[in-house]
Structures are given as C-alpha cells and as structure tokens.
C-alpha cells in the first residue's frame, strides 16, 4: 500500500498536481478570461436548454455528428484566416441541413451521421495539418480553449445563442408534442415534418457555439449530459430544462474557473463536473424509483400486456 503511494507520488509528483490545480495570481487571471467566462455562461445556458430536446428526440449521436462537421468548418476558417465562429457555423448548418433532410427516421439518421462524422473529422484534420499558425489554435478546436475568444467572436456567440433561445421559445410546445408523440401531434395539426429540420438547425447553431469553448470532441458533455442528468430527477417538462440549464452553467463556468490557473485545457474540468452531476442525479433517481415517484408507488404494473414498441406500423 505504501509502496503504491510512493510509486504514484514519484510518477505524478507535485508538479503535475500543480499543473492541474493552481490558484496563484487568480484575481489577475480572472480579468484576462472575462470573455471566456461570458462565453461559458452563454454556452452552459444554451447547451442545457437545447439538450433537453436532444434527449427527448434521442439525438445525442446527431450532436456528435454535427460537431465534427462544425470542427471541419472551423478549421477551414482557421486555415483561410477567416472568422472561426463563422466557419464552425457554416459547418454546423450544412451538417444539420443534411441530417434534417435525409434522416427523418432514426435508422436513416444514424447511418447518415455515421457516414458524415469521419468525413468531417478527416476534413478538419486536413485543414489543421495545412495550417501554419499557432498549434494551440489547432488543439483548441478539438478539445477546447480558454483565452482564445476575442470580443468580435464573443458577439457572434451571443448573437447565435440569442437566435437559438428565441427559436426554441417560439416552437417550444409543438416541439415537445412532436418529440414525445409525433403521430398524435401530426393528427392534432402540429407541423411535425417542418419542426424536425428547424430544430436540427437550432441544434447546429448551439453546437457551433460549443466548439468555441469546449471543443468538437466534447460537445456532448454540454449538449446531452445536463438534460440526461435532469431527466433522472424530474419528469416535469418545466423543471427539466431549468435544471438542465443550471447543470450546464455549473459545469462550464466551474470548469473554466478550475482550469484558470492550470496549463491543462478546460474541457477535462467541464466534462468531469458534468459527469459528476449526472452520476449524482442517477443515484437520486435510483433512490426515487425505489421509494416511489410523486404520490403513488409505481409497483403494480401487472395490468399491461405485451406492448408493441413506439413507431411500429399502423393497421393500413
């Protein structure tokens, strides 16, 4: 046991811990990353909001697919010396449109994403290897960056976030209806076929914001995990997005603040906090389902026969 500890200490050493957690000159650093903090707060809130629909519509894989094309767009912009945010927006929107247009059914969608994703990642790698500038910029697009956000970029991010939030607020109720019971929603006059690509577009915009802060590879920790955690502890359609936004905010801001003094990118902090929140919510959810949700115990379930899965064919 002691030899293990010794071994660990000699391997890792105090330097490594110092690299991961270092709060010297914290006040000065804080003023330097003002832009990043604002961007992080915006991302946390928007990511949390969007992720509740991502979970409802079963789209985590689409998020990942869009983020790789967004990465290709951003690295292309970096290579050409164009606005990186505009580049990632272009990539996201293209990906969202392709997935929205070709993949209305889950099976089609997943195969299209599976095809698009390595293509996007490959393009991105190509652009980055051609790029002659700072290598920190390259790495940042994949795994997140902290001080790379200048004021024009921040304005782009905030404007994009505002579009996403406004768009979601407008389509909120029909989107919930179409996400939870598409057939019935269509029968009640909800334009289900229109809502799907519109949401993909908003999702693409949210992904483009995330790339700037957390990096293409880790987008899911902001646009999936928060709502997945929230849905473990509540089924209220009002509380899920609110909790999810709170979780997103805590994860991104907490991650940035912890990463500040270190030489490690912010993403490991964000993903770890996000994961920890999920793990805690899962435990709470497990406890609740054992001790009963709401007023009634869900134990007697004997009166249900074998039910066909959602999406099974209709009579004619």
């Amino acid at each position: 046991m002691t030899s293990m500890t010794l071994l660990l200490e000699s391997r890792i050493g105090p330097d490594v811990w110092h690299q991961i957690f270092n709060f010297a000159d914290y006040g000065q650093l804080l003023s330097l990353v003002h832009n990043s903090l604002v961007a992080g707060a915006v991302l946390g809130l928007v990511g949390g909001l969007v992720s509740s629909f991502v979970m409802m519509r079963d789209l985590p894989f689409a998020v990942h697919g869009v983020s790789e094309l967004s990465f290709a767009g951003a690295s292309g912009a970096l290579l050409l010396g164009a606005n990186v945010v505009a580049g990632s927006l272009t990539g996201s929107i293209l990906a969202a449109l392709v997935i929205g247009a070709l993949g209305s059914r889950a099976r089609d969608r997943n195969s299209i994403i599976g095809v698009l994703m390595p293509f996007g990642l490959g393009l991105g790698v190509l652009f980055l290897s051609l790029y002659q500038g700072r290598s920190a910029n390259k790495f940042g697009l994949l795994t997140g960056q902290i001080v790379a956000i200048d004021s024009p970029q921040l304005h782009w991010l905030i404007a994009t976030a505002a579009v996403v939030v406004a768009g979601l607020l407008v389509i909120w109720r029909p989107l919930v209806f179409a996400s939870t019971d598409p057939e019935l929603a269509a029968a009640r006059g909800v334009p289900v076929g229109l809502l799907s690509p519109v949401f993909m577009l908003l999702l693409g915009l949210a992904v483009a914001i995330s790339i700037q802060v957390i990096g293409a590879l880790l987008v899911l920790s902001v646009i999936c995990t928060p709502a997945a955690a929230a849905m473990r502890v509540t089924a209220s359609p009002r509380k899920v997005p609110l909790l999810s936004m709170a979780f997103g905010l805590v994860a991104v801001l907490g991650g940035i603040l912890l990463a500040l003094g270190s030489s490690v990118p912010i993403s490991p902090y964000v993903t770890t906090i996000s994961f920890a929140i999920y793990a805690i919510c899962r435990l709470i959810g497990a406890w609740r389902s054992r001790h009963g949700w709401a007023r009634r115990d869900p134990a007697p379930r004997a009166d249900s026969g074998p039910a066909p899965l959602i999406g099974s064919g209709q009579a004619c």
């Binding site: 509740s52 607020l169 407008v170 909120w172 939870t180 929603a185 909800v190 209220s236």
Partner: peptide
C-alpha cells in the same frame, strides 16, 4: 424517461399544438 407527467400529456390535448 419521457420527461412528461400524466397531467402534462393531458395538457397537450388542450394546447400542445400552439406556438410558444
């Protein structure tokens, strides 16, 4: 894991199709 309570499903019948 559908994030709706029974009452929310019923509410959809009232105004689930409305914008906003």
């Amino acid at each position: 894991s559908t994030p709706l309570r029974a009452r929310d499903v019923v509410r959809q019948g009232l105004d689930g199709h409305r914008w906003g």
